[in-house]
């Protein structure tokens, strides 16, 4: 995997009617990665995606995709030529049939993959002559995914691709995505607030809260950096302040002192020894715990 970023945002701000949706977002997505973009509802995920695709202009800062400035109209068209997109609402043209939608989208992409088009039409069992307005949400999602995957794109941007889908269709969509990305050299940037699906398919994660990036990096590195150190004492846990870099949470409960850190376990363990606990356990955090801890830290 090369480490040249496909997506870069630096000091990115976006306000709508005085409300800041994105506040100084710094983000890098390396080529070839599958990056899960996590955040609560209203954290700024969709706004960031819209900026990357030229649908919204940043108030300050800049966003680059393939090294091109996303808010420049000419560069934005070049970015979109190499990018597949599935929006949260899977808004397609209700008056077109599936076959018309596919023909329509194919006309804009010189690298359109007819082989994949036929494969996904069969795999997703999409009825070619049915109007989009008559498709279920699951079918519409599959069609939107087909239209994004067949573009011959270098980058896939997916905004809550599985929102509103039942678990069976969610799994089908994710499997299709993983298989596709495994076979084609491409970068995937997808937003979600479903942590399980990010864990399932992503190798990188960026967590955004209130418009700012609070965690970003390779999933393995993030998992290594975040840990919970549990100390048990003979008597009541001491109230002494634990001075170590990366401490984001300290909880006392009777004889137990729990410290959550984003700076790895070693500095905490070293500092904890001075408190003379009876035992020290280092427990890795799940992505869900990392997500909640980072939001707590930001709050």
């Amino acid at each position: 995997m090369t480490e040249q970023p496909i997506i870069t945002t630096s000091g990115l701000y976006k306000s709508y009617d005085g409300v800041e949706a994105v506040r100084g977002l710094d983000l890098q997505v390396p080529a070839g990665s599958i990056c899960g973009f996590l955040g609560r509802n209203g954290a700024g995920k969709t706004t960031t995606i819209k900026i990357l695709l030229g649908m919204a202009r940043p108030t300050r800062g800049e966003a680059r995709v393939f090294g091109l400035l996303a808010h420049s109209p000419q560069a934005s068209a070049a970015i979109r030529l190499r990018t597949g997109f599935v929006g949260e609402e899977k808004d397609l043209y209700p008056y077109m049939t599936v076959a018309e939608m596919v023909r329509f989208a194919a006309a804009f992409y010189p690298r359109w993959r007819r082989d994949l088009e036929q494969r996904y039409l069969r795999r997703f069992e999409l009825p070619a002559e049915r109007k989009v307005k008559a498709l279920s949400r699951g079918m519409r999602t599959k069609l939107a995914l087909l239209l994004a995957l067949c573009r011959g794109a270098d980058l896939l941007i997916l905004d809550e691709p599985t929102a509103g889908l039942d678990p069976a269709i969610t799994e089908e969509v994710l499997q299709a995505l993983v298989t596709h990305v495994g076979a084609e050299a491409m970068t995937v940037f997808f937003s979600s607030h479903h942590i399980a699906e990010v864990e399932q398919i992503a190798d990188r994660v960026a967590i955004i809260d209130r418009g700012r990036s609070v965690v970003a990096g390779a999933l393995d590195d993030v998992r290594q950096a975040f840990c919970r150190v549990e100390m048990v004492f003979d008597g009541e846990a001491p109230e002494a302040e634990l001075r170590a870099p990366g401490v984001i949470q300290v909880r006392r409960s009777g004889r137990v002192l729990v410290v959550v850190s984003r700076g790895g376990a070693d500095p905490i363990v070293s500092a904890a020894r001075a408190l003379r606990p009876k035992s020290i356990d280092v427990v890795p955090l799940t992505l869900k715990e990392i997500f909640l801890a980072s939001l707590g830290e930001e709050a």
Partner: peptide, 11 residues
């Protein structure tokens, strides 16, 4: 509902 975002994602 009319596919505005899909249209805007086209090159």
């Amino acid at each position: 509902e009319g596919g505005a975002l899909f249209t805007l994602s086209l090159p």
